[in-house]
Design a binder for these strands. Structure first.
Length: 848
RNA sequence: GGGCGGUUAGCUCAGUUGGUAGAGCACCUGCCUUACAAGCAGGUGGUCGUAGGUUCGAGCCCUGCACCGCCCACCA
């Protein structure tokens, strides 16, 4: 009997193409009136999208569609974050190339997939970037296909990738602007360093991992007799020990301050110094300071006059040093050198083992195994080390209060997520290191002059002029120089570093507003309205964006931050590619339809993690089918209605219709208010509930009148049906764009070609709602149906008599609704017992 | 160690300013009813993590605790 409707094959493709063709989602650059701009997260392009993307992007799209229907000029772009390490790794693998930034650009070279095995081919940075672009563009096309199918209402003309010339120029402009206003500086100092990627990293990219370690109790002899025992988890840094410190109030050690200890094996004379950062409760209360074991060592060293003893190389291996020379001075150079040479070339973990052996009796007891948190670069495999290198920093510590204030000016959804931001800013302890010793990224727009000996003069960099942007200093010469002077004495060299990927991502609002390029556009779009993102990057993306916006504009970047939850697998862990068996969005879209997937995303509230549960897709699919069937029924009835109208109600309505219409008007009000607060899930819940009430109760109440009656009674039913469907479709449109557009086209396309540009339904200021009467109707229906079910009779089984016990006012109302009630319940007669109590009870007597 | 969430039916989750515990899924029963059996009707099922407090009244407000998760922390 029933038609089979497969959402995807029947209409999804059709509407996707139609929207693309008609440009229904286009932003109007010259439009006046209210606008709504979205700082879309640019997904990392390295592999494929996962369900988490579908989840959060759909939530943003729901809000975009709502605002568009409210008449806003919606700016909804898409970006791709394609620079950074993940892409670098893939390009290396796919094309068999590696970057040598000192090589010149080769315009004739083209990347080839499936390279022969063997050593990686070295190419210039510009060639490397071209290879990265080639690869990421393929991925971006695949991303766009999925986004299109999911029906994200993006203006695809507003698309960017973070490595493209536009974003390169913008990032470099940002750098130069910060330079000229004194917000960036360069310094050679101990910096957090990843030894595998051989690059500096920033505080925001750190994570703690609990790792096994061991307390080593090491005895130091004192220069003038006696000894002391320090406890350390990093015995391998003993040759880099520069001091022994204890708390000034620690009476166990106060007599030692000002005296000297002799380091075991290396025989160095080590000052014993009072320092309040030593905690008497920890270890033996006295500890060694090494260059550099941790951040505390760095901080302490900076305030001391002691020289650094650098033993770890940039590759994380012990590098050769010569004892007997300052600062490695030793009483027994030969023994020190002999022992140290056993460490040279080793990584930290191996050196720790070797040192354990070397220490021998200086270890007063076997190492005591512990587990402790260790800092890692979030993408790295080895613990962070502190290396003295030259890096560029953005000043943040001097702006903490201002940035806290900016965070207060932004509305966070949910509000408690603001505390994540506040906590992070309060805990900031370093400026932002933005230079990375990598290749695929935005180069710094600067060069260093070379002296007569060919050595760079780092203190007098040559900066690019604004008209040179975008540029790669490895391929472009500074003003006043010629390419032939590159690398030559008295010539120049380009800065070999690239910027932290967040240095670009933190400019997404400006990238889209064309800051510094198009004043009118910038003023129209900046600050933006909403920034959707997930909570784990509040400390990076949100924070850096707020910081840059403050630095460049003394303004907030957007009015609202919307924090999406995570999709959790049934073990309550975040779903991720690395965990395997992840369902691809494409498979889900094909199996359940885009509308069903969107329904799942729309049910989840902002900031709340959601379990991955496919039964919810099933519910979404059921809802779209129900919509189609209900609409099909309404359409059939409306063949008796000559003219098409939207939102027009006649003066005369049958009482049942007026009663229902007021109910639905209230739903419009609730849904609208929820969506204005970005509470799309609340709106969906309200709309959905009303829709099932419409189908199960209202339709059943009036269907008989619609096809049995004629004249005014029928017409009232038909108009109410048309009006209700017009409302429901638009309420659902942000959530279920395909099925609503399909049904819309059956009737209203001549008035508004696309539902997605149709006006959002309005509601009267004071809805004349009679909730208690409507509730009474529902109670009567339920009682009649319940009686039939309990008697195991069909729903059309006749009711001989119905007695309703209710207050006078309700009875008065019900008398006007009797015709519809009788027809819907096959009820013979209805009697009333009026009472003072507000409760409504019903007695049902069935026919035999 | 600090901060922020969460704990409600077997599962996934709602629960507006305190006023008699809700939905969907699952399960059970019945019903072919002129949109829909991919449907409809009805039903079983919860001392709302825990111990106190405030209140006439607490899932909701206050305090302590437990467990789960996230974020952060100079981690000797």
């Amino acid at each position: 009997m029933h038609e089979r409707l497969n959402p995807r094959t029947d209409y999804e493709k059709k509407w996707q193409e139609d929207w693309d063709k008609t440009g229904v989602y286009h932003w109007q650059e010259v439009a006046c009136g209210a606008s709504f701009s979205i700082d879309t997260p640019p997904p990392t392009v390295s592999g494929s999208l996962h369900v988490g993307h579908v989840f959060s992007y759909t939530q943003t799209d729901i809000l975009a569609r709502y605002q568009r229907m409210c008449g806003k000029n919606v700016f909804y772009p898409m970006g791709y974050d394609d620079n950074g390490l993940p892409t670098e790794r893939r390009v290396q693998q796919v094309f068999g190339i590696t970057c040598n930034p000192t090589l010149p650009y080769d315009p004739h070279w083209t990347p080839k997939k499936n390279p022969p095995k063997g050593p990686l081919q070295e190419v210039s940075r510009r060639n490397f970037v071209e290879a990265c672009l080639l690869l990421t563009q393929e991925d971006e096309r695949a991303f766009e296909d999925t986004w299109q199918q999911l029906a994200l209402s993006i203006d695809w003309r507003q698309t960017y990738s973070t490595i493209n010339p536009h974003c390169t120029a913008m990032s470099q402009r940002s750098f130069l602007d910060m330079l000229h206003t004194g917000h960036v500086y360069q310094v050679e100092a101990p910096t957090m360093w990843d030894v595998d990627f051989k690059t500096a990293v920033a505080q925001a990219e750190l994570e703690d991992r609990v790792m096994p370690g061991a307390y080593h109790h090491i005895r130091f002899e004192l220069q003038d007799g006696g000894d002391l025992v320090i406890v350390t988890t990093r015995p391998e840094l003993l040759p880099a020990c520069i001091a022994v410190v204890a708390h000034p109030d620690d009476t166990r050690y106060t007599h030692l301050f000002g005296r000297y200890a002799i380091s075991p094996i290396f025989g160095a004379t080590i000052p014993i110094i009072a320092s309040s950062h030593a905690d008497p409760e920890k270890g033996s209360g006295i500890l060694m300071v090494c260059t550099f074991g941790d951040q505390a060592d760095v901080a302490w060293w900076k305030f001391s006059d002691l020289p650094a003893k650098q033993v770890l190389g940039l590759n994380g291996r012990f590098m050769p040093v010569v004892f007997g020379q300052d600062p490695f001075g030793s009483r027994d150079c030969a023994r020190a050198q002999e022992s140290y040479d056993m460490l040279v070339g080793l990584k930290v973990a191996a050196a720790r083992t070797t040192m354990g052996t070397l220490l021998g009796e200086a270890l007063i007891k076997p190492p005591e195994p512990i587990e402790h948190p260790v800092k890692f670069y979030e993408k790295g495999d080895s613990p962070i080390e502190f290396m003295t290198t030259r890096q560029w920093f953005v000043r943040l510590l001097d702006k903490k209060q201002a940035l806290l204030n900016q965070g207060q000016l932004i509305q966070w959804h949910p509000d408690f997520m603001k505390s994540r931001y506040t906590n992070w800013v309060e805990g900031l302890n370093q400026d932002w290191c933005i230079s990375r010793q990598r290749y695929f990224g935005i180069p710094f727009p600067l060069w260093y002059p070379l002296d007569g000996g060919g050595n760079p003069d780092y203190d007098h960099p040559i900066f690019a002029t604004p008209d040179q942007l975008p540029l790669d200093p490895q391929s472009t010469a500074p003003v006043g120089f010629d390419e032939s002077m590159r690398g030559k004495p008295n010539g120049f060299m380009g800065d070999p570093d690239v910027m932290d990927t967040w240095a670009t991502s933190s400019l997404t609002p400006q990238l889209m507003s064309h800051w510094g390029q198009d004043k009118a556009r910038h003023n129209q779009l900046f600050p933006m309205d909403i920034r959707p993102q997930s909570h784990e990057i509040i400390r990076t993306w949100a924070f850096y964006t707020i910081a840059k916006s403050w630095i460049h504009h003394k303004d907030i970047p957007w009015g609202h931050v919307l924090i999406s939850g995570w999709v959790l697998d049934p073990d309550r862990k975040k779903m991720s590619k690395s965990k395997g068996n992840v369902v691809t969005p494409q498979a889900l879209l094909d199996h359940y339809s885009a509308d069903a997937i969107r329904y799942w995303a729309g049910r989840a509230r902002l900031g709340v993690d959601t379990s991955y549960d496919e039964s919810v897709f099933q519910i979404g699919k059921k809802l779209t089918t129900k919509l189609l069937n209900a609409a099909k029924f309404v359409k059939m009835q409306l063949e008796n209605l000559s003219s098409v109208s939207l939102d027009t109600l006649p003066v005369h309505l049958e009482p049942m219709d007026a009663l229902w219409i007021a109910q639905l008007q209230q739903v419009v009000e609730l849904a609208t208010k929820a969506l204005d607060q970005f509470e799309y899930a609340t709106a969906l819940e309200t709309i959905e509930k009303a829709f099932w009430t419409f189908c199960d109760h209202y339709l059943e109440l009036i269907k008989g009148r619609a096809y049995q009656e004629t004249g005014a009674k029928q017409r009232s039913a038909l108009v109410s049906l048309e009006w209700s469907l017009g409302i429901f479709l638009r309420l659902f449109a942000p959530f279920l764009p395909y099925v609503t557009e399909e049904i819309w086209s059956w009737r209203w396309a001549p008035i508004h070609p696309s539902i997605h540009k149709a006006p959002w339904p309005i509601y009267p200021k004071d809805v004349a709602i009679n909730a208690s009467l409507w509730d009474a109707v529902l109670i009567i229906l339920a009682e009649v149906r319940g009686a039939k079910t309990r008697a195991q009779k069909s729903m059309k089984h006749p009711v001989k008599a119905l007695t309703i016990t209710c207050p006078h006012a309700i009875a008065e109302g019900l008398r006007f609704l009797e015709d519809d009630l009788k027809r819907a319940g096959s009820i013979g007669s209805i009697g009333y017992t009026e009472i003072a109590h507000p409760a409504v009870t019903v007695e049902v007597i069935l026919d035999d």
